[in-house]
Design a protein around this nucleic acid. Structure first.
Lengths: 321, 321
DNA sequence: CTGAAAGCGCTTACAG
DNA sequence: CTGAAAGCGCTTACAG
């Protein structure tokens, strides 16, 4: 009734303890409806007593599914991506999935090489959660290769038009729109929109939501935004800024230029509320984004049909507007 | 010479293409010194041509090693942990390892339950990178269970006195000491030390480095630090603060109280330089911490002996002191 | 409702 | 230096 050597209990240990076959133990775990109630109980009791949990490696090898998903982020050191990773990990854990983290450093060549290696790296699927564009030949080819090898693909920002790929309906345009409308309602009708990379999908969605705004491309960092706001056109009366680090740069730049304008950040991160002045945000929450990503990926991996829900932003007013 | 169906190439496909046995292909990958030069080349060419990469699941099942390590952090949404995760992932990738991320939410019961499940979750080892204390019965028992099942354990902050566990020599005391000395050199000799949880190993190391300081326990967040600094004893002339979010809270609290004091943060995060005022930091870098964690874990997994290097802090002066 | 058997793709003694 | 064979722990038709 006890298990062998030093290793963890295997399905065979449980089967012996419960007086059934390995098949039945496996069925209790994967298809409990086709097992009689008392067998179910005996097996579960035995499994608990032995602290049994199935080997992911064996499951992966035989069944093709490992319970692991990959998360690809643009830069995990950025506040938003930390909050997103937290949400993704929590949602994955609720479904019994583990998350393998990869950091792209916003580089397309890394994205491609990581995708190329994924099919053999024990993951059932991948979430590509970068604000950078995916619509280039090598990346699309790598994505198709994942699909061909049975690795499910969910994209987080860009709607990738590749059959089999599921994309979030991330309405970042609603964030820019809500902010622009609120500003306009108080007389600020000449906003500038600070974008990291205007060709990326995040930037394009924001621009679509605030079509009246002056658009500035500053790079996704503090320095670029600081520079751009030092010599802002005089007619600009308010700022919509893509990310919090950029907003910090913009604040510094404005201060250098001796100006003070209303600022709204199109990214929802806990930090925004902890700064003084606290930043007003208008964005989709990382929690809803992470949960939706894992919902879509999990369903796709299981072969269930899914309809992406449109995610919309909320405006949270704080000190900067 | 081509591979079957839709799946990826297996070791057998490569063996056939190269005209050798699977044993030889495996040897080329794992023990190339015992293979003749021309066989080596033939096999490698075949592997490249077929884009072969070995199945992690099969490797894990048979060989016991999966090339995956788990990273347990206190709260991935905190800026420091994002920077740390980035460094860990980069160091792991350099060694061909993948990183499975877990978030503890600073809760001991979660730490225990995650550790309990690890041995079957396809990881070769685990890095426990939390500032919270590990020295309690259930956690130590769970750690011992990991070890017994062959999962290597590295702790990031606390020196855990369990045979087989490798611990970083994280000299957070040097951060507090450097800061206290620099403050004293400019006449600030009554600093207060703001700690999250004074029983945790991070807090204890800091306190050891600045023994002269008043110690305040505020919790690891903005609000607690803000509250504590609103009614700071009048004799306190400067602040050493454990984390950046706490420092933001402290700044807000000081502002509310109408005071302004030199502040040094004992945590090195990119964000510190991007705030206005920019925070002076005195801490170990996340880069060196992450690299050292993976160096120790990788060596331990391979059964090689390792000697932890003592990590020391650097002081970077910015606006707040 | 239950079980015997095959097989997923590797690695590792063992034999030559 | 190379290969035949066993086996890691599961799941899944298949048969009953």
């Amino acid at each position: 009734m006890t298990r062998s050597g030093g290793g963890a209990a295997t399905i065979l240990d449980v089967a012996r303890a419960a007086g059934v076959s390995r098949t039945t133990v496996s069925r209790v775990l994967n298809d409990p409806h086709h097992v009689s109630p008392d067998t179910l109980k005996r097996v579960r009791d035995a499994a608990d007593a032995l602290q049994y949990s199935p080997s992911g490696a064996a499951r992966g090898l035989r069944g093709g599914r490992t319970g692991l998903v990959a998360l690809l982020v643009g830069d995990i050191a950025q506040p938003f991506h930390g909050a997103l990773a937290k949400a993704v990990v929590a949602a994955a854990e609720n479904r019994g999935l583990g998350v393998v983290l990869h950091d792209l450093g916003h580089r397309t060549d890394r994205l491609e090489s990581i995708l190329r290696k994924l099919p053999r790296q024990q993951v059932d699927g991948v979430v590509i959660a970068t604000a950078d564009s995916l619509a280039n030949g090598p990346v699309v080819a790598a994505v198709e290769d994942c699909l061909r090898h049975g690795t499910a693909v969910v994209t987080g920002v860009e709607q990738l038009d590749v059959p089999g790929v599921v994309s979030l309906r991330s309405g970042h345009d609603t964030g820019a729109r809500l902010a622009a409308e609120a500003l306009a309602a108080e007389g600020f009708d000449r906003p500038a929109l600070l974008l990291g990379d205007r060709t990326g999908p995040f930037a394009r969605q924001l621009a679509a939501g605030a079509p009246a705004a002056d658009v500035l491309e500053t790079g996704y960092d503090f320095d670029g935004a600081a520079r751009a706001t030092r010599d802002l056109p005089a007619h600009v009366d308010s700022l919509l800024v893509a990310t919090l680090p950029m907003a910090l740069g913009a604040s510094a730049g404005l201060a250098d230029a001796g100006r003070e304008l209303p600022v709204v950040v199109c990214e929802d991160v806990p930090l925004a509320a902890q700064l003084r002045p606290a930043f007003t945000t208008s964005a989709i929450t990382p929690e809803s984004t992470g949960e939706e990503m894992i919902r879509l990926l999990d369903a796709t991996v299981r072969g269930e049909p899914v309809t992406p829900t449109r995610l919309t932003a909320r405006l949270v007013r704080r000190d900067t507007f």
